[in-house]
Amino acid sequence: MKLAPILDPNARKPGPKPAQVDLHKVFFIGTAIWLLLGIICLALVIAGRHMVSALVVCIAGMIIGILLLVWEHFNRWNYRRLANQKQ
């Protein structure tokens, strides 16, 4: 193990450029999956199965997904700007 990069920050290799990503797609697909699973769990609860805890987890996943979509909407400019910076 080389100690030069640890002791001297100027000896470090440059880090990779940040990748341009679309978090809206990721958060939307994840929320849609939670919605689908929530519908399945709701059908099982109505059918008499004891899946209430799984339904609560699906609802929590949907709420978190919606909150992440709102966050992404307001912060899209920031994370896209960081990916476009030249190093």
Rank of each mutant, 00 (worst) to 15 (best):
2 K>T: 14
5 P>T: 04
6 I>V: 15
6 I>E: 11
7 L>N: 12
7 L>M: 11
7 L>H: 06
7 L>A: 11
7 L>W: 06
8 D>Q: 06
8 D>K: 05
9 P>K: 09
9 P>T: 09
9 P>E: 09
9 P>R: 08
9 P>A: 11
10 N>S: 15
12 R>P: 06
12 R>E: 11
12 R>C: 14
12 R>L: 09
13 K>Y: 07
13 K>R: 13
14 P>Y: 01
14 P>C: 01
15 G>M: 13
15 G>H: 05
16 P>D: 09
16 P>A: 13
16 P>K: 12
17 K>W: 00
17 K>P: 00
18 P>V: 03
19 A>S: 06
19 A>T: 08
20 Q>R: 11
21 V>Y: 07
22 D>A: 04
22 D>H: 04
23 L>G: 05
23 L>S: 02
24 H>N: 09
25 K>Q: 12
26 V>S: 03
27 F>N: 11
28 F>V: 03
29 I>S: 03
30 G>Q: 07
31 T>N: 10
32 A>D: 04
32 A>V: 09
34 W>C: 15
34 W>G: 10
34 W>S: 15
37 L>V: 07
39 I>T: 14
40 I>T: 08
40 I>P: 01
40 I>M: 04
43 A>N: 05
44 L>V: 00
44 L>T: 00
44 L>F: 11
45 V>C: 13
46 I>Q: 04
47 A>D: 04
47 A>I: 01
47 A>L: 08
47 A>E: 02
47 A>R: 06
49 R>Y: 15
49 R>L: 12
50 H>S: 14
50 H>C: 05
50 H>E: 14
51 M>D: 06
51 M>F: 13
52 V>C: 01
52 V>H: 13
52 V>L: 15
52 V>P: 01
53 S>A: 14
53 S>E: 12
55 L>P: 00
55 L>A: 13
55 L>C: 07
55 L>K: 01
56 V>Q: 06
56 V>K: 09
56 V>P: 01
58 C>I: 02
58 C>Y: 03
59 I>E: 02
59 I>R: 03
60 A>K: 01
61 G>T: 03
61 G>L: 03
62 M>K: 00
62 M>E: 02
63 I>V: 15
64 I>C: 08
64 I>V: 12
65 G>K: 07
66 I>T: 09
67 L>K: 05
68 L>G: 04
68 L>R: 15
68 L>F: 15
69 L>Y: 02
69 L>S: 02
71 W>A: 10
71 W>K: 10
72 E>W: 00
73 H>R: 13
74 F>W: 08
75 N>E: 12
76 R>E: 07
77 W>N: 08
79 Y>I: 04
79 Y>R: 02
79 Y>C: 01
80 R>C: 07
80 R>I: 05
81 R>T: 12
81 R>W: 13
82 L>G: 01
83 A>N: 07
84 N>K: 15
85 Q>N: 07
86 K>M: 08
86 K>S: 09
